[in-house]
Each structure stands twice: as structure tokens, then as C-alpha cells.
């Protein structure tokens, strides 16, 4: 297969033409191709118009700001790449990048694993009270981060919370996880996984519906055990789903903000400051809109790199499937 990102324009015609057609068909092929492009354009136009107006254009505005000393108000002057240089020299920002990478490394794999695990359990037909479990397990996703934070802060408060109180009754002393420079980031990650795994679970559940049952039946006839069925049938069947899930987990991980904004405000001692949290405080609180925009584009570069690697692997697999 040819590469995806580098030369997509050359791939399509070859596929569409089916390779070795006779030359007298070329005009017909071109006409058909033009008609396809037209139809695709018509289907894409409404959504793309919205996205261009409210995402793409603002993104260009932000890109322009990243080369200025904009404060968010009044005039700004062009300062070239200074903001980008600051991103990699400002200790607080470097720390935020490191925190974000650490967060992503914990959050990404775990949220996918937990989501897939829950989906596999709930997809079984022999589970009693399946509807009940599906509802209960999905609850954290339905509630807002504000409510989730309120609940967890109540439960884990070292002085007044139920969990430390009950553990204390068992003789276990539990410190304040959100105030510990070591544990705050893992704790925030855990809450985010708790909150979001339901999202991935639902996508996996829907994806699991797409795997033809007869494949499992064939595998059983071949004497495949549960693990082999998982490896040979479930995982390949979830390929397209997996591409989406992984790209989404990467984006979610690198854009971690809500739970930090609500629960720790980046503390203690910057232990939970992530890239987006810094973008937010620099841009909105400290009049550094230009710098915040530059940091956003550094983040974009990081996510894009990881996302495109995944997407390229994923779409190649998809094509192999076809």
C-alpha cells in the first residue's frame, strides 16, 4: 500500500481505476471521479462550513497570536518565535509538559483497558441484570465533572471524608491524596479514568456488535479458548473502533483540564499543572494570550505526531481489511 499522509491524491485514482484499465476508459474514469468529488463535497459542505467558521478560523487567529505578545486586550506586537522559545525554557511550562506526558502515559492505556474490560463483561449474554449493570457502570460518565469532583472531594477529604474515616476505623491512616505532590497526579488521573471509562465502554460495546457472531462460533468449533477468541476474533474485529478510541484517548489525555481546574487548580506545588491548565492560566489569568497560543500549538504538534502515527497505522489496517 502507498503511504497515507504523503500521497493520498495518487492513491484514489489507482484504486478507483482498478489498476490496468484500457486507456480509452480514462475520460470516463475522470468524469466519474469528478462526479464523486462533487457528491462528496455536497455531503461534506454543511459540516465543514461550521467547522471552518468556528474551529479552523479561530485556530488561525490563535496561530497568528502565538507570534505576538498579545495580552488579550488592545494592541499586540509581532515578536516572532520568542513565545516558542519560552515554552521550552520556562521551568513551570516544562514541568507542565512533563506532567502531561506522565498523565497521558497513565490515563491512556488504563482508560482503554478498563473501558474494554467493562464492555467485554457487559457484552456477555449470560450476565444476569445486564441492564442494571450497564446503567450503574455508565453513571460516572453521565454526571458532570463538577459533580464528580464534589463527590470525590467529599469522600476523600482526609479530615471529614468517609473513606479515610472508615479506613481509620480499620487502623489505616490515609493522607490527603490531593495535597501530596506524589499522589495528586495519580489521584486526578484515577478520577478521570473513573469518570471517562464509560465513554470508551460504550464505544467498545457498539464496536463489539459489529463483530459477526459466526466468527466466534467458528473459533469455538476450532477449539479456541477464551483468550484465543479474544486475540483472534475480538481484537481484529475492533480495529476501526480501536483507531478511534486510541486517537481519542491521546487527545483526551493531552488536553486534560476539567478535573484539574475543578479539583486541584494545578497544585500542590504545580504537581498537577498540565499543558492545557497552563494555557488557561496564562491566557486568561495572566494576560499572556500570545504565549498561551504558542503553547497550544506546541501541544498540537505533540498530539498530532502521536495521533497521526496511530491514525496511519489504523487506516492502513482498515485498508488491509477491505
Amino acid at each position: 500500500m502507498t503511504s497515507t499522509a504523503a500521497g493520498p491524491a495518487y492513491r484514489a485514482p489507482r484504486r478507483l481505476g482498478g489498476g490496468g484499465r484500457r486507456p480509452d476508459n480514462s475520460r470516463q474514469i475522470a468524469t466519474r471521479e469528478r462526479s464523486r468529488t462533487l457528491r462528496a463535497t455536497a455531503f461534506l459542505a454543511p459540516a465543514v462550513a461550521v467547522i471552518v467558521a468556528f474551529v479552523f478560523v479561530p485556530a488561525i487567529v490563535a496561530l497568528r497570536l502565538s507570534f505576538t505578545d498579545a495580552s488579550g486586550f488592545g494592541e499586540a506586537s509581532w515578536i516572532g518565535l520568542d513565545n516558542y522559545a519560552t515554552v521550552f525554557t520556562d521551568p513551570a511550562t516544562v514541568r507542565a509538559i512533563a506532567n502531561t506526558v506522565l498523565y497521558a502515559a497513565m490515563y491512556g492505556p488504563l482508560v482503554i483497558a478498563v473501558g474494554l474490560g467493562a464492555a467485554l463483561l457487559l457484552n456477555r449474554r449470560d450476565v444476569p441484570l445486564r441492564g442494571f449493570f450497564r446503567t450503574i457502570i455508565f453513571l460516572p460518565f453521565v454526571i458532570s465533572m463538577a459533580v464528580a469532583s464534589l463527590a470525590w472531594a467529599f469522600l476523600l477529604d482526609p479530615n471529614l471524608g468517609l473513606i479515610p474515616y472508615w479506613l481509620g476505623g480499620l487502623g489505616i491512616r490515609m493522607g490527603d491524596v490531593f495535597a501530596s505532590t506524589t499522589w495528586a497526579l495519580p489521584a486526578v488521573t484515577a478520577v478521570a479514568i473513573w469518570k471517562n471509562f464509560g465513554y470508551f465502554m460504550v464505544i467498545f460495546l457498539a464496536g463489539l456488535q459489529g463483530i459477526p457472531r459466526y466468527l466466534y462460533e467458528a473459533a469455538i468449533l476450532d477449539g479456541a479458548g477464551a483468550w484465543r477468541r479474544f486475540r483472534a476474533v475480538t481484537l481484529p474485529g475492533l480495529r476501526a473502533t480501536m483507531t478511534f478510541v486510541i486517537v481519542f484517548a491521546i487527545i483526551g489525555a493531552f488536553q486534560a483540564f476539567d478535573q484539574i481546574y475543578i479539583m486541584t487548580q494545578g497544585g500542590p506545588d504545580r504537581a498537577t499543572e498540565t499543558i492545557v491548565y497552563r494555557i488557561y492560566t496564562d491566557g486568561f489569568r495572566d494576560f499572556r494570550m500570545g504565549f498561551a497560543s504558542a503553547l497550544s500549538y506546541v501541544l498540537l504538534a505533540i498530539t498530532l505526531l502521536l495521533g497521526l502515527i496511530q491514525l496511519r497505522v489504523g487506516t492502513k489496517r482498515e485498508r488491509d481489511l477491505e
Partner: peptide
């Protein structure tokens, strides 16, 4: 300016 950051240091 920089109150957020100064507070973080003082904390």
C-alpha cells in the same frame, strides 16, 4: 501580574 504563579510558589 502573575498572581497565580506567585501563589503557587508561596504555597
Amino acid at each position: 501580574g502573575g498572581l497565580t504563579d506567585v501563589n503557587a510558589e508561596l504555597s
